[in-house]
Design a protein around this nucleic acid. Structure first.
Lengths: 132, 132
DNA sequence: GTAAATTTGTTATGTTATAACGTCAAGGAA
DNA sequence: TTCCTTGACGTTATAACATAACAAATTTAC
């Protein structure tokens, strides 16, 4: 994996916005934040996101059409990640322990399919918001 | 749950299209198929889909922005469903056994969240397509 | 039967994502 | 060096997905 400083400029800009926010953002929200920079068009954002995702630096949340910076070093090694999303505060937890990959492995076996990619997203209300 | 014949007309039309196709369809694909009927605008399709989903007759596949008629009677009783999608032939299998709901329950506990809804989608190549 | 509430249809618009094409920079062959 | 190819990037335009706002029709409560 490339070191951070070696990333092309647009990738650095997009990743920095996502890391600063810490929550899911749509491509167009990212674009808004980059107003005034060299990133001016949607496609520049989408192309940067695609590369960051393939590098494991960013995840796509299918159920939100949004993107989030990876904040779990273990997900890179395990390869399968579940996302737990609070619908109130938008906090996202990444879970990528053995139980997750085992579940997907068994699901693929049961359905007689060769897995290519998976999307596991659980929406709910987190403990902090529940008590607020 | 309402019997089929009692469904409002638009719901019947939309459901019939989905059942005939048997594969995921976008709202606009459904709209195309209904050309000439009383369903003329996207919102009519989306409203029908929303109701059919709340009745458990239709599922939404988040990773495809698409919809599919439910073809697993057990998913209604269990409540949590995993979808296994072949990227080649578009066949979708619904899996809603105990292992799926147990996985989601444990995930929610681990993340200290009160679950509201979940989306589990596994993409791959099915056995039939693998051998073709 | 009539008013209030809900559902439905229509138009317009908002949001998400990609196609098509032109330009430029890097690297290799003669 | 000069030319050529290749791939990355920027820009414009457009495609694909989804909902807001309001008007018309229907249902419900009394």
């Amino acid at each position: 994996m490339k070191r951070r400083a070696e990333l092309p400029n647009n990738l650095q800009l997009v990743l920095a916005v996502l890391e600063k926010k810490g929550h899911p953002m749509s491509a167009y929200m990212i674009l808004d934040q980059l107003h005034g920079s060299s990133v001016r068009a949607p496609l520049q954002v989408y192309r940067a996101l695609e590369k960051l995702i393939s590098m494991g630096q960013v995840h796509r949340l299918e159920s939100l059409n949004s993107f989030i910076a990876c904040n779990d070093t273990s997900c890179a090694t395990v390869g399968v990640t579940a996302f737990v999303i609070c619908e109130k505060c938008e906090q996202v937890q990444e879970v990528s322990d053995n139980s997750v990959s085992l579940f997907i492995t068994e699901l693929a076996e049961k359905a007689k399919i060769t897995a290519v990619k998976s999307s596991i997203e659980l929406h709910g209300i987190c403990g902090a918001c529940e008590n607020a």
